[in-house]
Design a protein around this nucleic acid. Sequence first.
DNA 1: ATGTCATCTTAGAGATGA
Length: 250
Amino acid sequence: MRIATWNVNSVGARLPRLLPWLEEVAPDVVALQETKCADGAFPYLPLQALGYEVAHSGDGRWNGTAVLSRVGLADVSLTLEGHPEPRLTSAQCGPLHVTSVYVPNGRSLDDPHYVYKLAWLQSLRERLDGFDPAQPLVVMGDVNVALTDRDVWDSSLFAHSTHVTPAERAALQSLIDWGLVDVAARPGKGDVPFTYWDYRAGMMHKNLGMRIDYVLASAPVRVRDAYVDREARKGKGASDHAPVVVDLDV
DNA sequence: ATGTCATCTTAGAGATGA
């Protein structure tokens, strides 16, 4: 089974890249984030034409998550309890339960959005108590946290920034400690499999990136291979995030 | 730190978010 997660930064704008990517990589299940469209505007038809069933949570301009599956789609959930923004979609996809998450950015340490981010991560952790770590499941998506200093290109530049604070890292670690494995993708250019590079200042070209997109898998998920698809971050009309692709057995 | 990108408002270029 092949799964993937990708913050597409608008599914509408990304469709000319997303559709050929799906044909080439042929994942069975895909978690999308930042679809940035209302449910009524979601491109169901071209995705269904590729064989995917779709569950989408979205309300327009911001946020938006989806699960695409060609191995079945059941028990769909479109919300994280207590948080109205569309930042979580989950479904049972054949033998694997899949959750697509778009964790709030936080913006800055003195912004209310940072408090919201920590609360959202706490709610996500509590949501896991409705599951069993002995069942095959993955939580994947843009978690907007770099787990270690190695997961940003220069940790000294993040001294007073979000994404690297002890509180954010502890919140992400608490998800892992529930019973999940932070799936290690093959190293990319350089030693760290970054998944995000700012559009500005030639960051991708200089490989000044961050690892903020994760696949967290429960113990019954046997990972065969995992990689960051840097090619999808290159060229015209790319998202600022690259997909993470994982081959696994359940 | 910020050289970009996407969307919405509302018919141009500015605001917002990342």
